[in-house]
Design a protein around this nucleic acid. Structure first.
Length: 271
DNA sequence: CGTGAAGGGCGACCATTTGC
DNA sequence: GCAAATGGTCGCCCTTCACG
């Protein structure tokens, strides 16, 4: 638990660093915010915040910069929250209602809404587990010897693949087979499924192998989808234009160290 | 009410780093 | 190499609180 004074100090450090992209010194804080404390006291408090892992010091005589943990604390506990009006809530609900019921479409829409509200660039990623796990599987008969395997992951992604079967199956038999396998693979990763040593029918073995292969492919090949919007708003800021034309964005970012200073609020949790 | 311990804050001094 | 900026540490002072 941070004292109120340390919370206030962390808030000043984060806001100052986001604004200037320079380490924040104790005297600078006292002067700018007219704190009723000496710089020595501020240094002691900064040292306490450093012990908590909320700020860090690039080198011995430098000021402090917020750590990832510090940014997270700021966002969750210190950043002033803007209350959305009921009209705006209604509009956002309507926009999501209109969107296709696909996760990536929702993420794209979330990026667009965030960028519009913040008048800045916004990045949204879909949930991504470091090790995909099965939530459940389904089998849909396409033809006597052909079935569609649908694998739903715990991270809300859906994978599918057609399977050629050695013998004909009715839909009832496929549903029953999927139900039995769900007891074995639900909550499991590809490695855990492969390690299972349980007597299975040839068709069950085939489906289990296909499920495991799909999981591995999803883990290795599919990059984490991310969606960005609002870059145009970022480029409108005076720092990024020169004589009416857009200057080299990366150059400006590097020059001002903004790539390190800007805390990116990423995530698809729309509450 | 007086006294002593503990904690917090401050100023001064020194060490370190950076930029010119 | 030097000046400026910054943090760390030390000793002093003040306030608070417990105790006799």
């Amino acid at each position: 638990m941070l004292t109120d004074r340390r919370k206030q100090l962390l808030k000043h450090i984060v806001e100052e660093y986001v604004e200037t992209a320079q380490p924040v010194g104790s005297r600078a804080l006292v002067d700018k915010y007219e704190l009723p404390l000496s710089s020595a006291t501020i240094r002691n408090e900064m040292a306490a915040l450093e012990d908590e892992g909320l700020v860090a010091q690039p080198h011995t005589s430098a000021g402090r910069v917020p750590t990832d943990t510090g940014y997270r604390y700021y966002v969750e506990a210190l950043m002033p929250e803007e209350e959305l009006t009921e009209d705006l809530r209604q509009t956002i609900r309507h926009q999501f209602h209109q969107a296709a019921r696909e996760l990536e479409e929702w993420a794209r829409l979330a990026a667009a809404i965030l960028a519009t509200r913040l008048r800045n660039a916004a990045v949204v990623t879909t949930p991504h587990s470091p090790e995909p796990r099965v939530r459940w599987i389904e089998l849909v008969g396409v033809h006597d010897y052909l079935a569609l395997l649908i694998v739903v992951l715990e991270e809300a992604r859906v994978l599918q693949q057609t399977l050629t079967l050695d013998e004909p199956f009715t839909q009832e038999e496929l549903t029953s087979l999927a139900r039995r396998l769900n007891n074995l693979v639900a909550g499991k990763s590809a490695a855990e499924i492969s390690e299972q040593k349980i007597a299975l029918s040839p068709a069950e073995v085939s489906v289990r192998q296909a499920t495991s292969a799909l999981l591995k492919a999803a883990d290795e090949l599919t990059p984490e989808p991310s969606f960005m919007d609002g870059v145009r708003d970022l480029l409108k800021q005076p720092e990024f234009t020169e004589g009416g034309r857009v200057v080299d964005l990366l150059g400006v970012l590097e020059e001002r160290s903004l790539s390190k200073a800007i805390p990116v609020a990423a995530g698809s949790d729309m509450g």
